[in-house]
Simulated scan of single mutants.
Amino acid sequence: MTQTKDIDAQTQLELEAAAFRRLQQHLMQDRTDVQNIDMMNLAGFCRNCLSRWYQEAANARGIEMSKDTARELYYGMTMSEWKANFQTDASEDKQERFKDAFEANVSHETKP
C-alpha cells in the first residue's frame, strides 16, 4: 500500500489495523443482520473471506493457524455458534448467485 508523505510507516500500519478492527466490529456487532451470502453476492467477500485472509497472513508469517481457528478469532465464537445466533436460511436464488460469486471471487484465490 502506498504511504502518504506525512504518515510514517508504523503509523500507517496502525491506522490500517484500526480500520480493520472497526470493520470487524461493524460486521460482528453492529450489523449481525447482514448475511454472509448477501455480502458475497454483492461485494465478492464476506466474514469468512476476512477470516481466511487473516489465516493466510498468519501462515505467511510462519504462524500455524487453521481455518476454524481463524474463524473463531475473527468471529469471536465458533462458526456453529454464529450460525445458530445470526445466520438465516438463504433462498435458492441467493444460493445460485453465491455459486457464481464464489467462483468469481474466491475459487481462483485457492487454486495453485
Results as ranks from 00 to 15, higher is better:
W82P: 00
T69G: 04
L73K: 13
T69E: 15
D6F: 12
F20W: 13
R21Q: 14
N85E: 12
I63G: 02
L15I: 13
T88I: 10
L50C: 12
E92I: 11
M28S: 05
C49G: 01
T2K: 09
Q25R: 15
A60I: 00
C46W: 00
Y75I: 04
M77P: 01
A90C: 07
E64P: 01
D100F: 09
T110A: 10
P112T: 01
D6A: 12
K111N: 07
S51M: 08
A17M: 14
Q25L: 14
K67Y: 11
Y54N: 08
S51F: 04
R47H: 02
Q12D: 08
T88N: 12
E96C: 06
Q95P: 00
G44Q: 03
S91L: 08
T69F: 04
F86D: 01
N48Y: 09
A90E: 07
I63Q: 10
N85M: 12
D33P: 02
E109H: 09
F102S: 03
C46I: 01
A84V: 00
M65E: 01
A18T: 10
L27A: 06
T11K: 14
F102W: 13
Q35D: 04
V34H: 02
R22V: 12
A57N: 05
A84M: 07
R31W: 01
T11C: 08
T11Q: 13
L50A: 09
V106H: 06
R47K: 14
R61I: 01
E92H: 06
H26N: 10
D100I: 15
F86Q: 03
